[in-house]
Amino acid sequence: MTDREAPLLEARGVSHYYGARLGCRDVSFSLWPGEVLAIVGESGSGKTTLLNCLAASLPPTAGTVAYRMRDGVSRDLASLSKAERRFLMRTDWGFVHQNPADGLRMTVSAGANVGERLMAIGERHYGDIRQSAIGWLERVEVPADRVDDDPRGFSGGMRQRLQIARNLVTAPRLVFMDEPTGGLDVSVQARLLDLIRALVADLGMAAIVVTHDLAVARLLSHRMMVMKGGVVVEEGLTDRVLDDPQAPYTQLLVSSILQV
């Protein structure tokens, strides 16, 4: 089996409970290299709980999540040490938060935010790190002359673009995105979505995108899962699910968008 034929991430029977309250239950799927999966649903549907289980920031109550490392060996994330998980998150993975402040160091410069990720993979030459940081700022439409400014002076959209640069500079194989355009003005959302779509395609990375917005799912994803009450009620190719929804809840979601 070649590298492109083997799943990058596999979830099997993933469940999480907060005490007696259900977060998500019995979720299974495989994610392939270069594939973008959208997880959609209303607030409280379990999509963010599932994302956190997949990203190893929340331990599943039951089930397993396995990730295929760069050496080709699949590892159960629960078997990794804290140091191994931290290294994975700083190099092979990215995580784009809805609130950019959760994914940035707000008191250091834009350049330092990007450069820290490069240092995590062994870069040590200051000049090279700075040039790479400037290159990535320009790539995400942050002016190069803002490289020494800290993110507290940036707009919300610019902070989000900086967070994307920070996550993608190490060429991760998998990026988790939690409502990446939430809270932004519509015009800013549109530009950001175009940027994300282009970068994901250019870098050939896989992504898991949590969103309540079906338009975001259609634009970014190849495949989607619809969640309600902590369980997956429908899944399939994005265009098929949105153009011919089978589950009553998915039909309701799609029809509500069409009526807006």
Rank of each mutant, 00 (worst) to 15 (best):
Q251C: 03
F87H: 13
G46E: 07
M89D: 10
Q160W: 03
G153P: 03
I134H: 02
L253I: 04
A56N: 03
I39K: 10
V209Y: 00
L220G: 05
L31G: 07
L242N: 06
A83K: 13
Y249C: 01
Q163P: 00
Y17C: 09
G13Q: 14
A101V: 13
P248V: 00
L258C: 04
G236I: 09
R21I: 11
W93R: 05
G94Y: 06
T211G: 02
D178R: 07
F154K: 06
M69E: 15
G23C: 09
M158G: 00
S256R: 09
Q163M: 15
E84M: 09
D148S: 11
E116A: 02
V142K: 06
Q251N: 01
G229L: 03
L253F: 07
D3I: 09
W32V: 07
S57D: 10
S109F: 07
I134P: 00
C24R: 11
A247V: 03
I164K: 12
F154P: 05
M106E: 15
A78F: 01
S57T: 14
L199K: 04
A217V: 02
R75Y: 04
Q189R: 15
D194P: 02
E5V: 02
F87C: 10
S221F: 02
Y18A: 01
V226H: 01
G230M: 08
A112Y: 12
L184A: 05
T170F: 08
Y126N: 06
T170I: 05
F154R: 07
F29A: 07
G46Q: 06
F95E: 01
G183M: 02
V169C: 11
F95C: 08
M119Q: 14
D26C: 12
M177A: 13
V231F: 02
